[in-house]
């Protein structure tokens, strides 16, 4: 098919998502979001943290992604993510709980390193909640 892109999202834990899509967006590390349509020029770029959204038969699918690489070809996009999950695999309650735990913990943490770590958890939780909306 000429008007579809084969999207593959892979993490070290395994394949997260694989499907033919008609368009997609992913977050880059430095330059905001990249929108991809079929017949895109080949690109290799590092990824940032954010949401991948793709259109498949008019239906929108959302995935989270935390760092990694994207390889874009004319008929395929391969996403090598450090971490990634589909929105449907996320558990809202667990994330909300983790978020409130982290927000409590950030008040009691002392060292800068600890705070950084907890802040990272908080922003990851927020991103995941965002994916659920």
């Amino acid at each position: 098919m000429d008007d579809s892109i084969q999207l593959e999202v892979v993490t070290p834990e395994g394949k997260v998502f694989s499907s033919d899509v008609s368009e997609l967006q992913f977050p880059t590390a430095f330059r905001g979001y990249y929108g991809i349509l079929p017949d895109h020029t080949p690109v290799l770029t590092p990824l940032g943290d954010g949401l991948i959204s793709c259109l498949h038969n008019g239906k929108k699918t959302v995935l989270t992604v935390f760092g990694g690489f994207a390889e874009v070809g004319p008929d395929h996009v391969k996403i090598l993510a450090r971490e990634s999950e589909t929105a449907s695999s996320l558990d809202r309650e667990a994330i909300t709980k983790k978020l409130s735990d982290a927000e409590n913990a950030v008040k009691s943490s002392i060292t800068y390193e600890d705070q950084q770590k907890i802040q990272a958890v908080i922003s990851a939780c927020k991103l995941r909640l965002h994916a659920l909306e």
């Binding site: 892979v10 070290p12 834990e13 395994g14 394949k15 390889e71 090598l80």
Partner: peptide, 9 residues
């Protein structure tokens, strides 16, 4: 399950 990732990288 890490193999595909590794080979793509």
């Amino acid at each position: 399950s890490m193999r595909p990732f590794s080979s793509m990288l």
